[in-house]
Amino acid sequence: MIEVRRRVHARTEDVYAVLTDGWSYGLWVVGAVHIRRVSSDWPRVGSTIEHSVGAWPLMIEDRTVVEENEPGRMLQLRAHAGPGGTARVRLELTPDGTGTTIRMTEDAVAGPGRLIPVPVRAPLLKLRNAESLARLAALARGRPDRPERP
């Protein structure tokens, strides 16, 4: 699994609240551009987000499924990317004093993505996921129900 970490100046509850808002997925996940449907019970195990990835006119209809969920602590997803294959993404949240450390791991688990050697795909995933965590952090810090910012 390819790993990226980020310390966020936001409460763990605020970070998890963004993760549990399936409609926000397109705001923080790099590549997800259009959310079509979110299961009403997101993020229960088995629930889905249907979204598109890519840029018009070359968009792929995609879906992400919750594999595991430990509320406030961890969310594991299986992201399907049409003909590109499937990836497992795990987000772990650890409170650390005045903020939260987010650990995001991802790797291809099926399809052509597995054929790309790890030394080639790792740097690309790290860059993409570092940007995703920066966006997630900004959303968590900006939550309107947050009483004050550290």
Results as ranks from 00 to 15, higher is better:
73 R>T: 13
65 V>H: 00
69 N>C: 15
73 R>K: 14
64 T>S: 10
75 L>E: 03
61 E>G: 10
56 W>Y: 15
62 D>A: 12
46 G>R: 08
52 S>H: 07
44 R>I: 04
83 P>N: 08
48 T>V: 11
72 G>Q: 11
58 L>F: 10
53 V>E: 08
66 V>L: 07
75 L>F: 14
47 S>M: 04
51 H>G: 02
67 E>M: 00
79 A>I: 05
84 G>W: 07
79 A>R: 01
52 S>P: 01
58 L>V: 08
65 V>C: 06
41 D>R: 12
78 R>W: 01
44 R>C: 11
71 P>E: 14
82 G>I: 04
82 G>R: 07
49 I>H: 09
49 I>A: 06
64 T>N: 05
66 V>T: 08
70 E>N: 11
81 A>Q: 03
43 P>N: 09
41 D>C: 12
68 E>V: 05
70 E>I: 12
64 T>H: 06
39 S>E: 08
55 A>M: 04
63 R>N: 01
56 W>C: 02
80 H>E: 04
39 S>F: 10
66 V>P: 00
81 A>C: 03
68 E>D: 07
55 A>R: 05
47 S>A: 07
73 R>P: 08
71 P>F: 09
51 H>Y: 13
48 T>M: 06
73 R>A: 15
45 V>H: 02
62 D>W: 06
50 E>A: 05
76 Q>M: 14
72 G>Y: 10
49 I>D: 10
84 G>C: 10
68 E>A: 13
55 A>L: 09
46 G>P: 06
42 W>N: 01
53 V>D: 06
84 G>I: 00
60 I>W: 00
81 A>R: 07
78 R>L: 08
73 R>M: 10
77 L>H: 04
55 A>E: 07
43 P>C: 13
84 G>R: 11
73 R>I: 13
50 E>T: 01
46 G>S: 05
74 M>T: 12
72 G>L: 13
67 E>L: 04
51 H>I: 01
83 P>Q: 01
59 M>L: 15
62 D>H: 01
48 T>Q: 03
83 P>C: 03
43 P>F: 04
42 W>A: 07
67 E>K: 06
56 W>F: 14
62 D>I: 05
60 I>L: 00
70 E>D: 15
75 L>C: 06
49 I>P: 11
83 P>F: 11
80 H>G: 04
78 R>M: 07
48 T>K: 03
54 G>N: 12
49 I>E: 04
58 L>I: 08
43 P>D: 11
59 M>C: 13
77 L>Q: 00
53 V>P: 00
44 R>K: 15
72 G>C: 11
76 Q>R: 15
75 L>Y: 14
49 I>N: 06
53 V>A: 07
70 E>H: 12
